[in-house]
Simulated assay, not measured.
Amino acid sequence: MPKDTNGHLIPGAISPERKVPHSIRRPPYIGRPKPPEYKGDNTYNSEQIEKIRAAGTIAAQAIRRVGEAIVPGVTTEELDAIGHEFLVSKGAYPSTLGYRGYPKSLCSSVNEVICHGIPDDTVLENGDIVNIDITAYRDGFHGDTNHTFRVGSVTTEIDQLIDRTAEALRRGIKAVAPGRQVNVIGRAIESYAKRFGYGVVRDFTGHGVGEAFHSGLIIPHYDSAPQFSDVIVPGMVFTIEPMLTLGTHEWDMWADDWTVTTRDKSITAQFEHTLVVTETGAEILTLP
């Protein structure tokens, strides 16, 4: 994703897929055009939750390692290499690699890219921001998380967007409680984001995760989503991952069928955790 003369991102050169040692267990969708249908109920027992936590911890540690390398002059391709090597060193498979044909081991979404940016030869510059999204698969379970990083010094407006997006995630997590519908999460997030006039992305959501990378359960980040009425119960595992923008919530997709950008090219930030529902609220499973 180099930039055009207006400073907007354009597709860059993508290197060949990285290799994963044969000793590391692959998710069941590898080598298939799409994953097998998930037939579970999005709840897990204590042993399974600990496996999700183990995968989530590796993903969070990988993001921390990648974040240490984010400086002006680094390419997103180089960041992918760091994340990939860390995951495989822990015996984990990079969940994105080969998922529905995705070619890389993490997503690197720069500036106006909402999500699913593919690492390439884009050189990060001072004032950019980049969201790093990593999911680790180990012992049959996925742990999914992401974090938005500043590249050098950013403007006050962008700095506030990043901090407030992180706060929106915290508020979404705080809204989780057994007996509530999942749409309460989006209500909490958008009511906060609207105070600042931010766009709240609607079409890319949180999701059930665990045995499946995406189970089919949808967690909305916006208000007025009564169609998402699943009831939250203890043992349920899913992600919350709000995407806020300085402009519109509307989006365009590149010809690669992955990279999603804001339609008005406004800057966007995102944060994500995998969590498990407890008797009283939620516990984060993606802490380093």
Score class of each variant (00 low, 15 high):
residue 2 P to G: 11
residue 3 K to T: 10
residue 6 N to S: 14
residue 10 I to M: 15
residue 11 P to I: 02
residue 13 A to K: 14
residue 16 P to R: 01
residue 19 K to D: 02
residue 21 P to A: 04
residue 21 P to T: 07
residue 21 P to C: 08
residue 21 P to Q: 07
residue 21 P to V: 07
residue 22 H to G: 15
residue 34 K to Q: 12
residue 36 P to Y: 00
residue 36 P to W: 01
residue 37 E to Y: 02
residue 37 E to D: 14
residue 38 Y to P: 12
residue 38 Y to L: 10
residue 39 K to C: 06
residue 40 G to Q: 10
residue 42 N to S: 12
residue 42 N to M: 05
residue 43 T to Y: 06
residue 46 S to C: 02
residue 48 Q to M: 12
residue 50 E to S: 15
residue 51 K to N: 08
residue 52 I to G: 05
residue 54 A to G: 04
residue 56 G to Y: 11
residue 56 G to I: 06
residue 57 T to P: 00
residue 58 I to Y: 06
residue 58 I to M: 06
residue 59 A to M: 08
residue 62 A to G: 14
residue 63 I to S: 04
residue 65 R to S: 09
residue 66 V to W: 12
residue 69 A to E: 15
residue 71 V to E: 14
residue 72 P to D: 10
residue 72 P to C: 09
residue 75 T to W: 10
residue 75 T to F: 07
residue 79 L to C: 07
residue 82 I to R: 03
residue 82 I to L: 11
residue 87 L to A: 08
residue 92 A to H: 07
residue 94 P to Q: 04
residue 94 P to F: 00
residue 94 P to C: 06
residue 94 P to N: 09
residue 95 S to N: 05
residue 98 G to Y: 01
residue 101 G to I: 10
residue 104 K to I: 00
residue 105 S to P: 12
residue 106 L to M: 15
residue 107 C to F: 08
residue 107 C to I: 00
residue 108 S to G: 13
residue 117 G to R: 12
residue 119 P to A: 10
residue 120 D to L: 04
residue 120 D to I: 02
residue 127 G to F: 05
residue 130 V to P: 02
residue 130 V to Q: 08
residue 130 V to F: 13
residue 134 I to W: 02
residue 135 T to E: 12
residue 136 A to L: 03
residue 136 A to M: 03
residue 137 Y to C: 03
residue 137 Y to T: 03
residue 137 Y to K: 01
residue 138 R to P: 05
residue 138 R to V: 14
residue 140 G to I: 10
residue 141 F to C: 08
residue 141 F to N: 04
residue 141 F to K: 03
residue 143 G to D: 02
residue 144 D to T: 11
residue 149 F to I: 06
residue 153 S to R: 15
residue 156 T to E: 15
residue 156 T to P: 00
residue 163 D to G: 02
residue 167 E to I: 06
residue 168 A to Y: 06
residue 170 R to H: 12
residue 171 R to P: 01
residue 174 K to V: 13
residue 177 A to K: 11
residue 178 P to A: 00
residue 182 V to M: 09
residue 183 N to D: 13
residue 188 A to G: 03
residue 189 I to E: 02
residue 190 E to K: 13
residue 193 A to S: 11
residue 196 F to E: 01
residue 199 G to T: 11
residue 201 V to C: 09
residue 202 R to N: 03
residue 202 R to Q: 10
residue 203 D to V: 13
residue 205 T to G: 03
residue 207 H to R: 14
residue 208 G to M: 01
residue 213 F to E: 03
residue 215 S to Q: 05
residue 219 I to D: 06
residue 221 H to A: 03
residue 224 S to C: 08
residue 224 S to M: 10
residue 226 P to V: 00
residue 228 F to S: 09
residue 230 D to Q: 15
residue 235 G to W: 12
residue 235 G to I: 04
residue 237 V to K: 01
residue 239 T to E: 05
residue 241 E to W: 01
residue 241 E to Y: 01
residue 242 P to T: 04
residue 244 L to I: 04
residue 247 G to E: 11
residue 249 H to I: 02
residue 254 W to L: 14
residue 260 V to H: 12
residue 267 I to W: 11
residue 268 T to P: 00
residue 269 A to W: 09
residue 272 E to P: 02
residue 273 H to C: 10
residue 275 L to H: 05
residue 279 E to D: 15
residue 281 G to T: 11
residue 281 G to S: 09
residue 283 E to P: 01
residue 283 E to L: 09
residue 283 E to K: 13
residue 285 L to Y: 13
residue 285 L to H: 11
residue 286 T to K: 08
